[in-house]
Amino acid sequence: MADPAARRRKPADARATHKRILKVADAAFAEHGTGASLNEIAQRAKVGAGTLYRHFPNREALVAGLLADRVATLATQARKLAKSADAGTALVEWLHTFVDRVAVYRGASASIVDSALDPVPGPVAEMRTELAGLLKSAQEQGSVRAELTADDVLLLAGGITWVAERTLRESRNTARLIDAVTVGLRTH
C-alpha cells in the first residue's frame, strides 16, 4: 500500500510542475512569440515532452493557461460594462482593455480569437458570451450597428491586437486603430 504522505505530495508536485512550465513558457513566448518551441520549453522547465503535454495537450492550451487570468478579467469587465448607461462607449473601453491585456506575446491574439470562435466551453468562451451581452446592450441602446456579432468584434479586436503585438504595443498606434474601427461599429 502506498504511503499516504507520498499521495499528498503528488498533487503538490504536479502543481509545482504546472507553475514551472507556465513560468518558462511565459519567458519563451515573450522572447519568441507563441510559436516558440514546445520541446525547448519542456527542456528549460526540466520536464519531458510527455509531462508538458499532460499538463497542456497543445500549444493553444498552453497559451490559454498563460492568459487565463487576463481572459477572466475581460469576461468580468464585459459583464459589468453591459450595464452601462452608454454601452457603445463601454464597448470601446472593452476593446482598449482587450488590446492591452492580450498583446503580451506575438501570436497571443490569434490564439485567443481562435479559441473564442471554437465552441468548446472554457474561459475564452465565457469571455465571448459576456462580450455578446455587452454588444447586445450597445445595440439595444442604438449606439452600435445591429448586424454586428460578438465574433465580428472579436475578429476586429484580434486584428488590432495583432498589430499591437508587432509594434511593441505603442499605445498611440493602437488607440488610433481602435478609434478608426469603432467609427465603423457605431450607428450613424
Rank of each mutant, 00 (worst) to 15 (best):
G133Q: 12
R176P: 00
L135V: 00
S115R: 15
V153Q: 03
A138T: 06
A103Y: 05
A164M: 04
V104T: 10
R169A: 13
L154N: 05
E130I: 00
R166A: 07
V153W: 08
G159E: 04
E165Y: 10
R145W: 03
A150C: 06
G122M: 06
L148P: 01
A157R: 06
M127D: 04
V183F: 05
V153G: 01
V99F: 01
R101I: 01
P119T: 13
P123G: 14
R169H: 14
A125C: 02
T161H: 08
D118W: 12
A180D: 08
V183L: 13
G159T: 04
R176F: 09
G142M: 10
D118Y: 12
R106S: 07
A110E: 12
L95V: 11
E126G: 10
W94S: 06
L95K: 09
L168S: 11
V99Q: 02
W162R: 11
S171N: 05
V163I: 13
E140C: 00
I112F: 02
L148C: 03
A132R: 12
V163D: 00
V113N: 04
A150I: 05
R169Y: 10
A125Y: 09
V181G: 15
K136E: 12
G122D: 11
R176I: 00
S137P: 03
H96W: 06
W162N: 00
T97L: 15
E126S: 13
E126L: 15
I160Q: 06
P121I: 01
E93L: 14
L154W: 02
I160M: 08
V163N: 00
A175G: 15
A175V: 14
G122A: 02
T129K: 11
W94Q: 03
F98W: 13
S111F: 12
R166M: 07
Q141C: 10
T97R: 12
D100C: 05
S143H: 13
E147F: 15
T161Y: 09
R169W: 04
A164N: 08
V181A: 15
V183M: 09
E140Y: 05
R101E: 15
E130F: 09
L135E: 04
I112L: 10
W94E: 03
R106D: 05
G122Y: 09
S111L: 01
S137K: 07
T182L: 02
V183Q: 13
P123F: 02
A103G: 12
G158E: 04
P123M: 04
Y105M: 08
E93P: 02
W94C: 09
T129M: 09
K136P: 00
R101F: 14
A157N: 07
T149W: 13
D151R: 14
P119D: 15
V181M: 15
I178G: 08
I160S: 02
R169C: 11
Y105C: 07
D100H: 09
V144R: 06
L135N: 01
Y105I: 03
R106Y: 06
L148R: 07
L177R: 09
I160P: 02
N173M: 08
K136I: 03
A164L: 08
S111T: 05
L148T: 03
D179K: 12
R176G: 11
K136G: 07
A110L: 11
R145I: 02
A150M: 07
F98I: 01
E140S: 13
N173L: 14
T149S: 15
A146G: 11
R166T: 06
D100Q: 12
L156E: 04
A157Q: 05
I112W: 06
L155R: 15
E130T: 10
D152I: 00
V124I: 14
A157L: 00
S171D: 13
S143Y: 07
G158K: 06
